[in-house]
Each structure stands twice: as C-alpha cells, then as structure tokens.
Design a protein around this nucleic acid. Sequence first.
DNA 1: CACGGCTAGTACGAGGGTCTGACTAATATA
DNA 2: TATATTAGTCAGACCCTCGTACTAGCCGTG
Lengths: 171, 171
Amino acid sequence: MTQTPDITTRQPGSQASVAALLFSAYRAMESRIFGALSQAGYGDVTPAQGRVFRVIRPDGSRLTELAQAARVTKQTAGFLVDQLVRAGYVVRVPDPADARARLIKIAPKGSAVIPIGAAVVAGVEAEWTALLGKERMQMLREALQVLWEATDTPSALRRHQEAPIDEVVVA
Amino acid sequence: MTQTPDITTRQPGSQASVAALLFSAYRAMESRIFGALSQAGYGDVTPAQGRVFRVIRPDGSRLTELAQAARVTKQTAGFLVDQLVRAGYVVRVPDPADARARLIKIAPKGSAVIPIGAAVVAGVEAEWTALLGKERMQMLREALQVLWEATDTPSALRRHQEAPIDEVVVA
DNA sequence: CACGGCTAGTACGAGGGTCTGACTAATATA
DNA sequence: TATATTAGTCAGACCCTCGTACTAGCCGTG
C-alpha cells in the first residue's frame, strides 16, 4: 500500500531518495511538536510561525534578521510576526539603535511555549536514539550538521542560486 | 549572523535540533530540483504537485491512493492532480475495475520530467557523498530509512494520532 | 433483488503561507 | 546637502490545505 517514498523523482531500482526520507522524518517531528502544543493549549501557533519564532535571539531580533534566518522574504516574516504579536507570543519594541527598526522580542507567553516544544523534541530524539542506537544517532546528527554547513550557509546558497532571498549579492 | 538553526524550539547549550537540520537538508534538495526543472523549461511544476506525482504507480493510481501516499486529503490530491492534468504531466483514465474511480497515469510529458529530477537527485547525493564520505552517506541513508519505517507507516501513524488523514481506523 | 451502508470522487468555501512590486521613513555616505 | 542604502509596510496575486457537504457507484444482507 504505502510504496517507496520518493521526492519528485522515482529512482527505479534503487533505494528511496534521501530527500524523501528527510522530508518524512521532518514532518514526523513537526507533527509531534504541534500536536503537543495544541494539547497544551497553544493550538494557535503554526509551523510557519514557529520557523520564525525559533530564530528570535534572546535579546530580540530585527525583522530583516528573522527573514534571512528563516529564509523567507521580509513581507512573509512581517506577516508571521504580526500573527505572533496578535497571539501574544512576541512583542515589537523600538530599536534604540535605529529609528527605522523595531526589535521583535519573545513575550512571556512565548517563553512559556519554549520548554514545551523542547520537551517534545527531546522526547522524539530519545525515541529515535532508542531506534538507532546512540552511535548512529550521533552520526546522523553530525552528518546532517555537515550538510547544513554546506547548504544553508550564505556562501553555499550563493553557490547555487538557491533562493537569494533579500540577501546581499555584493560578491 | 546566521545563528543556530532550531525548529520551533531552541536548545540552549546543546547542539542544533535534528529536526531543523532535516528541514534544512530537505529544502536544499528541493531547491535544487525545482531550480533545475525550471531551467529545463518545466517551471510550472510545484513542490506540492511533485509530492503527489512522485507516488503515482507506473500502471496508474487512484486518487485516494495518491492522497494516502502523499499524506494529504483527497481534496488536496484532487486539486493537485487537476493542475498536473491541465499542465499535461498526467492523464485521468477510467478505472475498468470500478466505474466510480479513475486512474491517474503519467503522460509523456510527465515521463520526460522524471529523468531530469532523477539526475538532480543523483547529483546532489553525489555532492553529499563527497562531503560525508561513502560510509557516512550510507549510514545516513540507513538511519533515515529506519526512522521512516518507524514514523511514516500506517501503524506508526496510528500510534501518535499524527494526521489520521482519510485512513481506516479499524484497529 | 432491493435497500442500507460504504467507497471514490467532486464542489464550495475558508484560511494560511508565500512571493513581486511598489512605496515611505530613516540612515549613511560622499 | 544630495544621493544611495536600509528597515519596514502595503496591496495584490497565487498556491496549498483543509472541513463540510454532496453525488455516483459498489456490495453485502435479508
């Protein structure tokens, strides 16, 4: 019934595409996180909001920063931050260093959510460690970290014309 | 500038969340695939369409099948198949076995796209292999495969109330 | 065989997420 | 000071996804 999980491409004889597996694992984690948040009474956060929220620095971040870190346009980041503000998870305060800018900071309600998410992540990672064994889990993490450095870094992105989203192109 | 990539949750002292890394790697692959398709003149395919297209069986699949395999509702699958039909990548033909159903089959234009995507996937996987080494790449694949079996399987999904999308719940 | 329950698929409406392009306000630079 | 750059917003469009509700066809039991 459930067949080989490929992404966009079938690989005839070979094994399932790594990309499909990455997607599947990510979605599994995401489902667990947002399921738990929903049960904890935070059913109004969405994954997209979470991807912006997660990159807010402890002392606050500017919108442009969030957009770059989350890899979306400023408009999208602004849209999501609006929702987070309306829902009470973050606040916007003036940036003392620049009158054009505002700092997005995590509000108390936002701080309350963090440990819940962290607990789910820890739990799922523990399950995965139980499945894979400690060594393989550690290797998985390291391998992904290597790929991250090679693909999700400003220079790496420039290298492939991948989504030069609001990014400086000055060589 | 680019800070630790977490997903929805920051992990204070520790390493970056595995989920964030999974997401990042997946997005990198997806960007490469759709960038290449776009350059090859297939700029009208979208990731969502691709996730349905990829699960079409060689001899054709029913809509409900596609919905389950792609983990979306029948409506969403139908919506995406409509687009694929309009763009000429697939066709709908009557299912001889059931007058209610139709089979979605890959059209010639769809077949033409498959090797392009496959080539990109192979290329990116080769790059990743070069970064990680053959052994670690193989371990990565195996580890993800184990997680896939544990999380993206009917019984696994039932186990967590994750998205019981149009799925039989009959124990 | 008739009929009630199930299955395949569609229609409609809503909401969320994302982008492009165009714009304002403030800053930095020459 | 005049110009270029940067922070952020506004408006419009499009894509994706789902819930609810419906029609058409199948299937088993009486």
